[in-house]
Design a protein around this nucleic acid. Structure first.
Lengths: 399, 399
DNA sequence: AAAACTTTGTTTATTAAATGGACAAACTAA
DNA sequence: TTAGTTTGTCCATTTAATAAACAAAGTTTT
């Protein structure tokens, strides 16, 4: 554990430039060495040598020649997304979703298991079992499983410890340590909303945004924040406690003990609570209510209208706070997109000024149920590909 | 205007390392070359040569020997804060405050001028005149005036254009271009809350925080956000529109046209509006109300109690959103610190959970009326000292 | 007081990496 | 067929960090 800040030397330069070349290939493939020279402004010789090293490491490969633009035909380069695989696990309140992805985030295997009221021990055992199962499904490759990411519906500290996960009834569970004992590869633990945000940013609706808020609306509300292309976690990892900001002083009681929280009006829980007020809607699930509303039930339609309005008010607050390029609505509520889209948009419009929403996009999640699993997988991939964090010439790792 | 991203080479390394050495001297002076080696982890020879270059550039200087720790006595280094000077201008709603600061942010001259209902032309002329006056007061130095920063109570885009400043009745004023015509040094235009945030971060109560929210409460509310030691401006520079987040759906009407905004309950304007309800308080200014409350007037005391509570509720919302290390309350309301401190704290406590405010500090501005002026001055200084942005060996500029 | 050790700082040879230019290869256009 | 163009590699040059030797100026031990 060095206490020095990072200083700069030739090795650092090379790592950085190599990383930039690799990113360029991942983003713009197929492209030639000459294209990279033009796009990055690096010297021809430098690009040539870095590309050849990356080819040696099997991270990119040549794939025939491209079209001539009046001279020698270029050799096109592709990212080798099969050089290794990552495992992503999304621990939900009543399910575990596991995926195997290639280095481009493409899902090559998945495993869904419903759960119900499990103890910490039972649930972590099930997570382990899921990982073991998925490991067997991973195709043979140069680097094998390069990392495992876990998404948890709770607060996670920087050491990978789950401080509190109310809906799982977890407290102080050192998930990272538990899994590192069993599996010999890097483990990444993240909050579910942060994971979803990162998944959408890398592979989903947020691909083109530099700043984006992912609002995860399920039983509760959490949010993941991407600023300057990076996940912002807050000083203690507690950013995204947005669901508990006050939108009505002295308003409705919230599960957190406070009053008037956004979540108390805009979550699935809030919806079901309102449904209880109508005798013929009492006991209905989110899915039931969607079916009813689709069939034209006026009370159900009204519930979604109200829900959408409150969601929109909260989103307007987020916009005025972060001024993001994009807001993405995800998690379970996504199923009701067609019912809430309009009220959300209307509420955002009526509670913000034109300049405050200039250039803003509001979208629903593209990866649907895979946002979080794909997101944690992306963390593992990034940890592997980020040269600056990878051991220099460690066993099985490219230099 | 290069379209390439920044790649890395030896020149870049040197700039970065030199900048780190300079920062170390600024933060920890007096210190020796050996101390820098220890703190940064750079090689002795590297530090020696970089330090000597910085001495040649007059940015640091030697100052005798320090205490021996069992061997040769070290040569102590100091930052030469008199190598150049910056000018900072805070354009308020009814004043212009100008300061001359040295490179360490120390104020060496100031000029305050009250204004009243001026046209764009009159006000910009007055700003120019203030700058010309301050330029004459700048002591002789190697680099002279290295930049001018201007703080404006409105929205500023990245090109230095004031898009809208409601209280000045400004719209689309290209302040940067206007001033660049007259003054031949770098000009920095910033929003007033952003400037205040940066001022407190560099020289005031926020010196030790990596993430901090500066809440500027005057006639309205604006906020400046520091994340990872840097100012976060949002995708269009509109972050900090926080004053207009909804805290009571369908609540009191706000000047922005919307309803229930935080600002409608927590600003100086809100306070004066409430005072109008009491016949013997009507027409009182903020200063009058403070005097009355200090004299024990129960109605005035109650007004501040209510104001503080609403301020605290809004701050709790900020905390749950950004999870900062610190919140600093600044601008005119600072005068009422002794009256609102307790209600603010109580409201923050009662509307947040212990873990959400873990490690959080809430303070009032330390630089009082100078926050914004010192902040914009700091922008100018940083622009000068940041080697990566300075022209390589430009006229009068160190390499 | 002399010798041995320590800390500070400079100088020099070495090494790593980007750069610029020469060159070869492969193609187009005239 | 010839001249020009684009792509990619190779090599000499340059820059900057590093390691190690060295010098300077102190302290501690004998």
């Amino acid at each position: 554990m060095s206490k020095h800040p990072t200083t700069w030397n030739n090795q650092m330069i090379k790592r950085m430039n190599k990383e930039m070349v690799l990113n360029q290939v991942m983003e713009s493939a197929p492209l030639s060495r000459a294209d990279i020279v033009q796009q990055l402004g690096l010297n021809k010789g430098t690009v040539s040598s870095l590309v050849n090293e990356l080819i040696e490491e099997d991270l990119i490969h040549e794939s025939g020649t491209g079209e001539s633009s009046g001279g020698r035909r270029p050799v096109m380069l592709l990212f080798n997304e099969h050089a290794g695989y990552a495992i992503g696990i999304d621990i939900g309140v009543n399910y575990i979703l596991g995926v195997v992805t290639n280095l481009a985030g493409g899902i090559v295997h998945e495993k869904l298991k419903k759960t119900r009221d499990l103890s910490v021990h039972q649930l972590t055992s099930l997570v382990s079992a899921t990982i073991r199962y998925l490991m067997e499904q991973v195709p043979p490759s140069k680097y094998g499983v390069i990392g495992i990411g876990i998404g948890v519906p709770g607060i996670v500290d920087t050491a990978g410890k789950v401080l509190i996960a109310p809906n799982l009834k977890w407290q102080d569970v050192d998930l990272k340590r538990i899994l590192e004992k069993e599996f010999q590869c890097p483990i990444f633990i993240e909050n579910e909303a942060n994971a979803g945000a990162y998944g959408e940013k890398r592979f989903g609706a947020g691909r083109n945004s530099h700043s984006m808020i992912y609002v995860s609306i399920g039983i509760g509300i959490g949010s993941g924040v991407i600023l300057n292309d990076e996940l912002y976690r807050g000083s203690n990892g507690y950013s995204g406690e947005n669901g508990h900001t006050t939108i009505i002083v002295d308003g409705k009681e919230c599960t957190c003990g406070s009053r008037g929280c956004w979540e108390a009006y805009s979550s699935e829980f809030a919806l079901l609570q309102s449904a209880e007020q109508h005798e013929h809607l009492a006991g209905a699930s989110l899915e039931d209510l969607i079916t009813l509303a689709d069939a034209g039930n006026p009370a159900a339609l009204e519930l979604f209208q109200t829900l959408g309005t409150y969601i929109g008010i909260g989103i307007a607050n987020l916009i005025k706070t972060y001024n993001p390029e994009q807001v993405i609505i995800g998690n379970r509520i996504r199923q009701a997109e067609h019912l809430i889209r309009n009220p959300v948009m209307e509420a955002v419009h009526s509670s913000s000024l034109p300049f405050q929403r200039a250039g803003l996009q509001i979208n629903f999640s593209e990866l649907s149920t895979y946002s979080a699993a794909a997101g944690v997988s992306a963390f593992a991939i990034e940890g592997f590909l980020k040269f600056s964090q990878r051991p220099l010439a460690g066993p099985g790792f490219p230099v």
